[in-house]
């Protein structure tokens, strides 16, 4: 048996170099800086700085507001991930069954994907505006006094809805292609064993979709944690006040608005560690139970 390979070491190294240098320059280097500056309190202009050890971290641990934001981030991520996956799956299952006008129907479901997060946030503002928003009016007809930007829960609701709405098309595309790649014969065989469509879905289709779902789960958690920044920023209009926010928004506020480089660096290091743990956890625990076809 002949193994294909390189004759010298240098060629593969040279081929890898562009990729590696990009990772080093744009990821490891700034990450290293973040870790380093998280141990300092420094003047924003770069004149003075004091080594404070772990103070930036312990200050965060004592700050009740930071803990409150962390807790909100957890709930927010769960809600956004769950609803954007669940609704997309429902839509994909239904779209999969449509035969007449399928293409139009699918395109209509997908095109929200092209909307940029800040635009999604802006649309959220228009729909949920305290005084002129149609959804606010809708809430009012059922007796709820919805106040975006005033009431904590109301703002949180608007954030979740805007974030879910924006993410559904991505999930929809993946779920639909996942469903279409399930062989017809499997379904036909299942029909003989189980006459209940719901039963068949949970026992046959859903397990076969598991690789897609697992992939989307990771994508959606990352989306909720990080990529909803644009939506949150637009909905808060740059003035957080008493409104909810996620951890990544807090990093931005303290670092870019408040010029607290040390504190903000400590927060980004915490987020880096969080993502690391999450990734390891997901691959170790969940991937084992999934069968790739």
């Amino acid at each position: 048996m002949k193994r294909a390979g390189f004759t010298t070491v240098w060629l593969p190294v040279a081929l890898l170099l562009p990729q590696l240098s990009i990772i080093a320059i744009f990821f490891y280097w700034p990450a290293g800086w973040a870790v380093q500056s998280s141990f300092y309190l420094q003047d924003p202009f770069g004149f003075g700085s004091t080594f404070v050890g772990l103070d930036n971290y312990t200050d965060l641990g004592r700050n009740t507001e930071y803990l409150r934001i962390a807790w909100f981030t957890v709930i927010y991520t769960c809600l956004v991930t769950f609803f954007s996956l669940a609704i997309a799956l429902l839509l994909a299952v239904k779209a999969d069954k449509v035969i007449r006008g399928a293409r139009t129907y699918r395109t209509l479901l997908m095109w929200v994907y092209a909307v940029a997060p800040p635009v999604a946030g802006f649309m959220g503002i228009m729909f949920f505006d305290q005084r002129t928003g149609p959804i606010t009016d809708l809430f009012q007809t059922v007796g709820s006094d919805f106040k975006l930007g005033v009431n904590y829960t109301d703002t949180a609701t608007a954030m979740v809805i805007a974030a879910v709405w924006k993410q559904i098309p991505v999930n929809f595309i993946f779920f639909l292609s996942g469903l279409q790649s399930i062989p017809k014969s499997v379904n036909e065989a299942a029909i003989i064993d189980n006459r209940s469509a719901t039963g068949r879905f949970w026992q046959v289709t859903f397990p076969l979709l598991a690789p897609t779902t697992f992939f989307l789960l990771i994508i959606n958690i990352t989306y909720a944690l990080f990529d909803t920044f644009g939506i949150i920023d637009t909905l808060l209009k740059g003035e957080p006040g008493n409104n909810p926010m996620t951890l990544v928004y807090k990093v931005f506020l303290d670092g870019f608005r408040g010029n607290d480089l040390g504190g903000s660096s400590a927060q980004s290091v915490i987020l880096m560690v969080l993502v690391l743990i999450l990734t390891v956890f997901q691959f170790r625990l969940i991937e084992r139970r999934i069968h790739y076809t």
Binding site: E65, V150, N151, Y152, E239, P240, G241, N242, N243, L253, D254, R257, G258, N259, D260
Partner: peptide
């Protein structure tokens, strides 16, 4: 002081709600 103002805004919002 930008952060101090943010803290004020947050707490005032909580008072008023």
């Amino acid at each position: 002081y930008v952060q101090i103002r943010d803290v004020m805004n947050r707490e005032y919002g909580r008072i008023l709600t």
